[in-house]
Design a binder for these strands. Structure first.
Lengths: 239, 239
DNA sequence: ACGTACATCTCGAAA
DNA sequence: TTTCGAGGTGTACGT
């Protein structure tokens, strides 16, 4: 972090100057003030006058945050073109992209705060407790699923998509696993069912394919669906 | 928007003082600087030293943004308890919650910027182009789905969940619609299939229930699944 | 509090 | 570019 520039209650022209320079040098820009927000693209939205925090990232992302909620009230994804201007005496931020055609317009009635930050971040997030970790755990110790289970492949392709773990049970019967890092509902059962059906059709072996849902737990409805489809469940958590 | 407080490259003690006062009066706090981030809860993550933008909202949400991406690299949902302190000469932000037990720790090596904003926002977002809008469009003009289609209920409950639109076709045959605001994949077909199966079993009428997926378009695999399950597709977009 | 499904979901990987 | 599934998904609305 080298430079930090800050303006409090700036004239629109001064805020524009700061934002323009910051964007040119790839800095992160924040603007706070009373504004309206209009969005049009995959959907369309309109937001009346209120105090919000606007963040413009050097990668083209734009975020409009209110005082509530984890999610921005409006946004634009990375890769957008930001343009800041003064129109009719008001600071205006416009962020656009194509494919799909989308535009976000923030019009400030008053700018309470404008800032630019030269941030640099080379670190990657190290995350554990994911589905990939659960997969590794099972590959390390397949007996956690079932004594005699032998993994043969991961991400094996079927006409319905890729199976998390493909293998066979102690009797040599084809057995596939669908892994979930957390408690699952009916959707995961549907997913596993599609893979089993696809393999049943593809392999047309004399014995049916076994499908096992591996997750910490399942909802009642999911358990019922598993029974209907002749699928199984094994309780297991990511390490 | 009334008060804006700003500090550039403050001492940790000064940053702490600003953040504490701001949190007490329900202001939005932002901190920018070089920091590490540790998270533990549903999963666990670790992030090495780098420049980030931290936002603490009065509703208890916390967001840690890097210079890239629309999503925060770490976060905490609304309802958390924030605590700011100085530990071993470093500014430390800790955000925790229970159910589930989760904690987020941000330790600043240097604070480049600290600010507090008294934001107020009474406006609600007006959003169009949602699934609800598609539903209204169909209820207004059911013939868009099929000549003679008659909606009888929305959100009708089945053992497998609530059906978007429940009705009957021109022959009096029970017909249910699953609506999606955008192009759909296999998951939506599975959803519709579950509802149709549940109603088939529940009503055990002499004729089978018709299931129609209503969306702008479907993927190849979804179309194939529809055919396999004897389900139908009608192309329709939200207004 | 849990369950269920929507979302301008976002994000990454693979075809 | 599209498709597909994961995600600490979040969010609203049920029960």
């Amino acid at each position: 972090m080298t430079a930090v520039e800050t303006l409090t209650y700036p004239d629109p022209a001064d805020a524009l100057e700061l934002a323009s320079r910051a964007a040119d040098r790839g800095a992160l820009v924040t603007l706070v003030g009373s504004c309206t927000v209009e969005y049009e693209g995959r959907a369309a939205s309109s937001l009346g006058l209120g105090d919000r925090h606007v963040m413009l990232k050097p990668d083209g992302a734009a975020l409009v945050h209110t005082d509530e909620g984890q999610q921005p009230v409006n946004w634009q994804p990375p890769g957008c073109e930001h343009s800041v201007s003064v129109d009719d005496g008001s600071l205006v931020v416009r962020s656009t992209r194509s494919t799909p055609e989308e535009s976000l317009d923030v019009v400030f009635e008053t700018v309470a705060h404008a800032a630019a930050f030269d941030v640099s971040d080379s670190e990657d997030l190290a995350l554990t407790g994911t589905e990939a970790d659960l997969k590794d755990r099972i590959l390390d110790e397949p007996a956690l699923v079932e004594s005699g289970f032998t993994p043969l492949a991961t991400e094996r392709e079927t006409p319905a998509g890729a199976v998390d773990i493909y293998g066979e049970d102690t009797d040599g019967r084809t057995t596939i696993l669908e892994l979930k890092r957390r408690r699952v509902g009916p959707d995961a059962v549907g997913q596993l069912g599609r893979y089993v059906d696809a393999l049943d059709r593809d392999l047309h072996a004399d014995t049916e394919v076994r499908g096992i849902l591996v997750a910490p737990s399942v909802t009642d409805r999911a358990r019922q669906l598993l029974a209907e489809k002749g699928l199984e469940f094994v309780s297991l958590e990511p390490p």
